[in-house]
């Protein structure tokens, strides 16, 4: 089953979810590590190159994800009450919001001087130019703090999934893994 049903996630949604999870965590780890690399490290040029390329890939994947969300039914959120349901919705919205903030701000750092971003030697994603003065600095600060924020959101996301699984003993986690 590629598509979602009213009770279950389809293969596409599950794959995109877990792929996004792996990419997001890897991008965070690599980003955290690469900013302190010495100029003479062999990773100094390679790590940012792949960080940017995978970041833009995740951006494309996330845009597809939202389109797919509209094209396929959404399984009901399992919740004990209305408040829980609202919190779940807000949490998911925040995850999407911060993903976009991180990816767009990252793009704005590298493209502040008109240079595009090379995507795996396939093509170059063009720059849209400088929107504000010292864009690379402003976007850099936003990128950093938004990345830390999304890590807290992810901890919350995981905690919620575990709560559903072990405390509520419902299918929330299972329907994303099975």
């Amino acid at each position: 089953m590629l598509k979602n049903s009213n009770n279950n996630f389809g293969l596409v949604s599950k794959t995109v979810h877990w792929l996004s999870a792996v990419m997001l965590l890897s991008l965070f780890a690599v980003g955290f590590w690469m900013v302190d690399l010495s100029y003479y490290s062999e990773w100094y040029r390679v790590a940012p190159y792949y960080h940017k390329a995978f970041g833009l890939t995740l951006l494309a994947l996330t845009i597809f994800r939202l389109v797919w969300k509209l094209a396929t039914p959404q399984p009901e959120i399992i919740a004990n009450n209305k408040a829980e349901k609202t919190i779940a919705k807000l949490g998911h919205a925040a995850l999407y919001l911060f993903m976009f903030v991180i990816m767009i701000s990252g793009y704005l750092i590298s493209t502040a001087d008109g240079r595009g971003i090379e995507l795996f030697n396939i093509f170059t994603v063009p720059s849209l130019g400088e929107f504000i003065e010292n864009q690379e600095d402003v976007a850099g600060v936003i990128h950093e703090y938004a990345a830390y924020t999304i890590m807290f959101l992810i901890v919350g996301h995981i905690a919620a999934a575990l709560k559903h699984h072990f405390i509520d003993k419902d299918d929330t986690l299972k329907r994303m893994t099975h």
């Binding site: 750092i109 001087d113 240079r115 010292n134 864009q135 690379e136 850099g140």
Partner: peptide, 16 residues
């Protein structure tokens, strides 16, 4: 010093 300009935004960010 923040006005340093080496014709590369990422490098200037690093220099700052």
């Amino acid at each position: 010093p923040a006005s340093i300009d080496s014709n590369h935004a990422e490098r200037d960010k690093h220099l700052r």
